[in-house]
Computed example of a mutant assay.
Amino acid sequence: MLIVVAYDISVKDQKGAKRLARVAKICSRYGQRVQNSVFECLIDQLTFVKLKTELTKVIVEKTDSLRFYNLGDHYKNKVTHIGTKEVLDLTDALIF
Rank of each mutant, 00 (worst) to 15 (best):
M1E: 06
I3Y: 09
I3S: 10
V5I: 15
V5S: 09
Y7C: 05
Y7N: 08
D8C: 02
I9S: 05
S10H: 14
S10P: 00
V11Y: 04
V11G: 02
K12V: 04
K12R: 13
D13Y: 06
K15V: 10
K15L: 11
G16L: 03
A17S: 15
A17G: 15
K18L: 10
K18E: 14
K18A: 10
R19K: 08
R19V: 00
L20W: 10
A21L: 06
R22M: 13
V23D: 09
A24P: 05
A24Y: 05
A24Q: 05
A24V: 05
K25A: 11
I26P: 03
I26F: 03
C27W: 02
C27K: 08
C27D: 04
S28I: 04
S28L: 07
S28N: 13
R29F: 13
R29Y: 12
R29Q: 14
R29V: 06
Y30L: 01
Y30N: 00
G31D: 01
G31K: 03
G31I: 02
Q32E: 09
Q32Y: 04
Q32H: 05
R33H: 06
R33S: 08
R33Q: 13
V34I: 14
V34D: 01
V34C: 04
V34K: 04
V34L: 08
Q35T: 08
Q35H: 08
N36Q: 14
S37H: 01
V38M: 06
V38A: 04
V38Y: 03
C41Y: 00
L42V: 00
L42N: 05
D44M: 05
D44W: 06
Q45A: 11
L46E: 15
T47L: 04
T47C: 07
F48S: 14
V49F: 03
L51H: 04
L51W: 02
L51N: 06
K52E: 14
K52P: 00
K52V: 01
E54D: 11
E54K: 12
T56V: 01
T56D: 11
K57R: 14
K57P: 03
V58G: 00
I59A: 04
I59K: 03
I59M: 07
E61F: 12
T63P: 00
T63G: 01
T63A: 05
T63Y: 07
S65A: 14
R67E: 02
R67Y: 07
R67T: 06
F68I: 07
Y69N: 08
L71W: 02
L71R: 04
L71Y: 07
L71Q: 03
G72W: 00
D73L: 13
H74L: 09
Y75I: 01
K76C: 09
N77Q: 12
N77S: 11
K78Q: 14
V79T: 09
V79L: 14
T80P: 07
T80G: 10
T80I: 11
H81K: 12
I82D: 05
I82F: 15
G83N: 06
G83T: 09
G83I: 07
G83S: 09
T84R: 14
T84Q: 14
E86R: 10
V87S: 15
D89W: 10
D89S: 11
T91K: 15
D92M: 09
A93R: 15
A93M: 10
L94M: 06
I95W: 12
F96H: 08
F96D: 00
